[in-house]
């Protein structure tokens, strides 16, 4: 049976791991390769590395880091952050990434999804969507939640799928960093709408929150950062608890 995936996310700035609280107030939490290997040994099913460097130098450091991750990690990993062209995606594929996530650049230029998917395959493109609820509607945001776009969550997710996205990574900017849980009804609606996997991100504070989004929320995977980085919920404890709750999990 296909297992639900647990995915730690590592934010990288200038080659170092950081975690944003509401994407502001960054704080370093470790070496990306070592932390990734540690998570893989603990039973993480995949890893996501997001480059939040703002400079060219930072970007180049990230590509070198991707090469080192690929050499050292024995589970799949996705990389993202600032991917704005097919060449950016190709460079990261060449460095050894299994998948890339595109976010703001795809909102600006949806053709990017089609172009990357047709060149490197649907499985290679994860479309990340950050959205906030405004007057009962889920509005898609860009630039780490700082800007509203004209798009709406469900129609955008569907368009991304039609353009060749292999997975959707949805973060509720209303829940991210709060540790109050995920908007499960929204996730369930998204999962029912789509024929590709949905990864839930943003808001996990307890094991129950993750169990809920994987069952009630019908998500295929749960992604989190700080609860793992700060050891609040160790991955083996989480996976054992989910397994006990009859959720299909790889132990």
């Amino acid at each position: 049976m296909l297992a639900k995936r647990i995915i730690p996310c590592l934010d990288i700035k200038d080659g170092q791991t950081v975690k944003g609280i509401h994407f502001l107030g960054l704080r370093e939490v470790g070496d990306p390769v070592e932390l990734g290997r540690h998570y893989a040994q603990q039973g993480a099913d995949e890893l996501v590395y997001l480059d939040i460097s703002a400079t060219f130098e930072g970007r180049r450091t990230f590509t070198e880091l991707v090469t080192r991750i690929a050499e050292n990690i024995n589970i799949p990993f996705t990389v993202g952050g600032g991917i704005a062209s097919v060449d950016d995606a190709g460079r990261l594929l060449g460095a050894g990434a299994d998948k890339v996530t595109v976010n703001s650049a795809a909102v600006r230029n949806p053709q990017l999804i089609s172009d990357i998917a047709s060149k490197y395959g649907n499985q290679f493109v994860v479309v990340a969507i950050d959205a906030k609820q405004v007057d009962g509607q889920w509005r898609v945001t860009t630039h780490g939640g700082r800007k509203f776009s004209e798009r709406e969550l469900f129609s955008w997710a569907h368009e991304a799928q039609e353009r060749g996205a292999g997975e959707i990574l949805f973060t509720s900017m209303d829940h991210d960093g709060t540790k109050n849980g995920y908007p499960c009804e929204t996730f369930a609606r998204l999962s029912d709408l789509l024929s590709i996997p949905v990864i839930a991100s943003g808001g996990a504070g307890t094991i129950q929150h993750i169990a809920d989004v994987l069952t009630l929320g019908k998500a295929d995977a749960a992604l989190a950062a700080s609860i793992f980085h700060y050891g609040e919920i160790p991955i083996p404890t989480l996976k054992q608890a989910l397994y006990q709750a009859n959720i299909p999990i790889r132990l």
Binding site: M1, L2, D45, G166, E167, L194, I196, P197
Partner: peptide
């Protein structure tokens, strides 16, 4: 859901 993606 296709592709079949993940751990089985």
């Amino acid at each position: 859901k296709v592709p079949h993606m993940g751990w089985n």
